[in-house]
């Protein structure tokens, strides 16, 4: 079924169109033109209109593309697992510092997602976390909250 095969793509283009619409609506909160020159609202309005137009164009193009040209996509599950791990890690950075979330995130990816040996995964995750934190927090003196008590 053609529509089934491309509905993800259409939704994605529609996302861009929505962003464009939001910008068009938002730009009206600002002055469009003042004195000699465009004011804060002018270019957001122009860009918003353009983005809506182009995204709709992409959707039209998708709908008019012959079915056989629709590309088969690879499965999504693994990417979602990684993205989920990334989001969880970022969410916990603010509460427990960097060391633990980064270590757990890598451990999860190595041992659960990639099914690599647990002991090696643990060692590699710990060593990589250590090296990166030494480089960033110590050598480059970036104020990275490393541990839960670093706040």
């Amino acid at each position: 079924m053609k529509l089934d095969a491309i509905k993800g793509e259409i939704a994605f283009a529609a996302l861009f169109a929505t962003v464009g619409l939001y910008w068009v609506a938002g730009s009206l909160d600002f002055a469009i033109w003042s004195g000699f020159a465009p004011d804060s609202g002018f270019l957001p309005l122009v860009f918003g209109v353009l983005l809506v137009g182009l995204s709709v164009g992409v959707i039209v193009m998708l709908l008019t593309t012959p079915v056989e040209q629709v590309v088969e996509r690879e499965p999504l599950t693994k990417s979602f697992k990684l993205l989920g791990a990334l989001i969880l890690a970022v969410a916990s950075l603010d509460f427990v510092g960097f060391a633990v979330p980064l270590f757990l995130m890598m451990l999860f990816m190595f041992s659960y997602v990639e099914k690599l040996p647990l002991v090696r995964s643990t060692i590699v995750s710990a060593v990589v976390t250590g090296i990166f934190l030494v480089i960033f927090a110590r050598w480059l003196q970036i104020p990275v909250p490393v541990f839960p008590w670093s706040y």
Partner: peptide, 9 residues
């Protein structure tokens, strides 16, 4: 996985 870590830091 280390690439993702590098990106975060």
């Amino acid at each position: 996985p280390p690439i993702i870590t590098l990106c975060i830091l």
